[in-house]
């Protein structure tokens, strides 16, 4: 018998929370999983779990990111699968962000450069830029030291800067 049932009470808070943070959490789910379908499943399971853990109050952002990360790992993200996935990221990244025709060239270039980043660097970048997490929070979430999290972020920015320099010398 399922412990979950879906009904309307509390739906306004849930909806507001989803509207405010759903895109950011889904971006991280995409980064953590191998396919769009996996990203959707992980996103849904993680948000439901986080919502219930906090007894239907608004869950802490870091908790949701951590739950997404754990669920993605549980789903069977292994090293060899990750390497295969990295090859696909660059191609899929177009769907990760909203298009903007005014700055399309730069944005496309930036998205491609993001896709070429190593997985761990891209993870820190997403958590910092779009997740707006502090480096200690990122370090705690990714099980590394603050220095490691910071340096991954720095390396990521450096690579992006190099890529942009090629675009606009």
């Amino acid at each position: 018998m399922s412990l979950l049932s879906f009904s309307s009470p509390g739906s306004s808070r849930w909806k507001a929370w989803l509207d405010a943070h759903g895109e950011m959490f889904f971006l991280y789910s995409r980064q953590q999983t191998r396919s769009e379908a996996d990203a959707k499943d992980v996103f849904q399971d993680a948000l439901v779990e986080a919502w219930q853990k906090t007894d239907r109050r608004i869950p802490d952002k870091a908790l949701v990111f951590a739950t997404i990360r754990r669920r993605a790992i549980d789903l069977g993200r292994s090293t060899d699968r990750r390497s295969k996935r990295e090859q696909l990221v660059a191609a899929d990244l177009d769907n990760w962000f909203v298009s903007d025709f005014a700055k399309e060239d730069t944005r496309r270039f930036l998205k491609n450069a993001l896709g070429e980043l190593p997985d761990l660097q891209r993870e820190v970048l997403i958590l910092r830029v779009w997740g707006d997490l502090s480096f200690p929070a990122i370090a705690n979430l990714t099980n590394v030291t603050v220095a490691t999290a910071t340096s991954r972020y720095r390396y990521a920015l450096e690579r992006l800067r190099d890529s942009l320099a090629e675009l606009k010398p």
């Binding site: 979950l4 879906f6 009904s7 895109e23 959707k40 944005r107 830029v129 779009w130």
Partner: peptide
């Protein structure tokens, strides 16, 4: 560069996912 990255807004939730997440989970 951070500013340029922030200009990249994450894509909206797919319609089917939004449907799946329509109502909050309720623990009995």
């Amino acid at each position: 560069i951070e500013s340029m990255l922030r200009d990249l807004r994450p894509q909206q939730l797919p319609a089917d996912l939004r449907t799946r997440m329509k109502e909050p989970p309720v623990r009995t």
